[in-house]
Design a protein around this nucleic acid. Sequence first.
DNA 1: TTGCGCAAAATTGCATTCATTTTTTGCTTT
DNA 2: AAAGCAAAAAATGAATGCAATTTTGCGCAA
Lengths: 240, 240
Amino acid sequence: MAETVLDRLADDGAGAVLTAPGELPRASATLHGELLAALRDYIVEGNLEDGARVPERLLCERFGISRTPLREALKVLASEGLIDLLPNRGARVRVLSADDLRELFDVMGGLEALAGRLACERISDEEIAEIERVHHEMYRFYLRRDMHGYFQCNQEIHRMIVEAAGNAALKATYAGFAGRIRRVRYSANLATDRDRWGEAMREHEAILDALRRRSGSELSDILFQHLRNKRKAAQAEDVG
Amino acid sequence: MAETVLDRLADDGAGAVLTAPGELPRASATLHGELLAALRDYIVEGNLEDGARVPERLLCERFGISRTPLREALKVLASEGLIDLLPNRGARVRVLSADDLRELFDVMGGLEALAGRLACERISDEEIAEIERVHHEMYRFYLRRDMHGYFQCNQEIHRMIVEAAGNAALKATYAGFAGRIRRVRYSANLATDRDRWGEAMREHEAILDALRRRSGSELSDILFQHLRNKRKAAQAEDVG
DNA sequence: TTGCGCAAAATTGCATTCATTTTTTGCTTT
DNA sequence: AAAGCAAAAAATGAATGCAATTTTGCGCAA
């Protein structure tokens, strides 16, 4: 919705910047940087339809800026894969084909596999305990069939593993891919596919187990397969 | 047809630009796109010192363009991690600390591990035969202690594995990280460390073996470790 | 009604201009 | 001679202007 962006910019004023802890570069006190972050969120959050034209003129008015910084931001978003720039024909929200999705999921899987491997090398007992805590919380949501809570915890666990990897480049790359995928809604299928939900829960048990044993290559495998299965479930939804 | 940016660069003798097949988005017939590719190569190839200021004015003259498209390209290069943009203080070639390098190598390792895993799922016998061919060529270079030839083949093999993964998103991401690392010279150490060279050669044997058996998770492990060892060798050079 | 052609309007890509900020230069003071 | 400071010069960030391309609107014919 339009107001979201307006409000965000207005709330921040010209100076203040929400320096969200180490996701994509929420670049500092420059107009370009703020605009970039705002516009990225605007698109990632699905305020524009798939394939919709990104209205340059309109966004300029809305943000109260000229075209120059906006166009700079669009170029960056295009390089991030969120939009397509068609020569002389403006920017469009990138539409992800089934094949694109397959690719993105696999890369996400590879990045998570890497995160798990690296995490095993350096994670502390305290961090593992933290993850276990969220894991058990997630399990309770699972028992209650509370999808929203479950997903919240699920994402949090994956985030914590990436965090535990202690690799900023990985984290930024991961965040970028997560943003590209986030536009796609693929969440509702666990409700209709109880088996998958149970399977996912078991996979998470295995993840925690491998993590406890600091078995990097094992965790790596499990995480990749976990994402693979997630992808398959998501794609099954497309068909049915 | 108008003279392209590339022509202008070539005219100035500042460095020929090759249109390498399917690396980072060599965007189409737009000035911005060409400029971006040219500037990226210009920086990746090391024409500017580490930490050097990127001379906006000068590059404009050299490329024969105005500041607007150049600045757009700089924003993108910054988002790719090749340069830093300091507010009001221009762009600088990003200096990679030892820690940055560690991170980048690990991510490269993770991406190669993923590539290997995916490649095992879909690679054809013919593709494997191709890789074997290059592998043997590389082995001959190894026996002759021809480092240049060896490296050429080495890179080619890794490129082929990424190619065989059949994942464009992975390929583009891989190319991006390769570009960021390419500025760093870490090649000369095999000459001084015969053991490492032999070890690398054995690792490549194992890579090929796992690939033949289509053992994805095994290849994944080997490739990650291979990059790990490469990193260690590269970092050892820093010290000695 | 549907499709075609063409002029008007809008949009895009890039150059240019303008206000700030940073950097340099040159003078003064100790 | 070195340090401090002010003014000039250069740079950066963003707005505006302009030519070129694309899209839209509309009349007209099939």
